[in-house]
């Protein structure tokens, strides 16, 4: 892969938008895209529940911030993060509701010697992952905080996003996530 095709910093939203808070990460990256302009070098991708299909992206990314619903012993809506050597075991132990896909993705990148130099999971604790388009109130109330966390992490890595004066795209998180 030539350097031109490399992605210096990938922001990858994961989760199923039809399953309540499971889709929080995807909702968050669409909200990020709507409200913030990204500097060159950052690519935002809605990975849904694609799992191994995302290997092509991960393999050309230098650093990755995964935004996802993460189960933890904490109140719904709490922000959590997982990094370094905790990433692989964390996703392997059913951390995320679609863990099989994420575990395969992480392992796959490692197996083909394409593991990014940094993988950070910025997560939010879900309350409910049953069939529902959109997050529950506790999680929805903290989606902006989740977006702010991603913005801060981007800034800390030398890629500060710029807040848009006029948000772009529909205001409904679900419609944005589905591309409607």
């Amino acid at each position: 892969m030539s350097d031109a095709a490399r992605i210096p910093l990938l922001v990858l939203g994961l989760g199923n938008v039809l399953c309540g808070d499971d889709g929080a990460g995807v909702m968050a990256i669409h909200r990020l895209r709507r409200g913030w302009e990204m500097p060159a070098g950052v690519r935002i991708v809605d990975g849904g529940t694609l799992g191994l299909d995302l290997l092509a992206l991960l393999a050309v990314s230098d650093r990755v911030i995964i935004v996802d619903a993460v189960r933890a012993d904490a109140a719904p809506g709490t922000l959590v993060d997982v990094t370094g050597e905790e990433v692989a075991p964390a996703v392997y132990e059913r951390l995320s509701p679609h863990q099989i896909g994420v575990a395969d993705l992480i392992a796959g990148a490692s197996l083909v010697d394409r593991y990014p130099s940094e993988v950070l999971i910025v997560g939010i604790v879900p309350a409910m992952t049953d069939l529902r388009l959109g997050c529950t109130p506790d999680v929805a109330a903290n989606l902006d905080a989740l977006v702010d966390r991603v913005v801060a992490e981007l800034g800390a890595r030398g890629y500060p996003p710029v807040r848009r004066s006029v948000p772009c795209g529909p205001s409904d998180d679900g419609a944005r996530a589905l591309g409607l």
Partner: peptide, 21 residues
């Protein structure tokens, strides 16, 4: 099975250690 069904945590499954902010 994902299309026919929905995935949630198995009861009693151990939660991995994560840092809570």
């Amino acid at each position: 099975m994902a299309c026919g069904v929905h995935v949630v945590d198995r009861a009693g499954a151990e939660l991995a250690k994560v840092k809570v902010r």
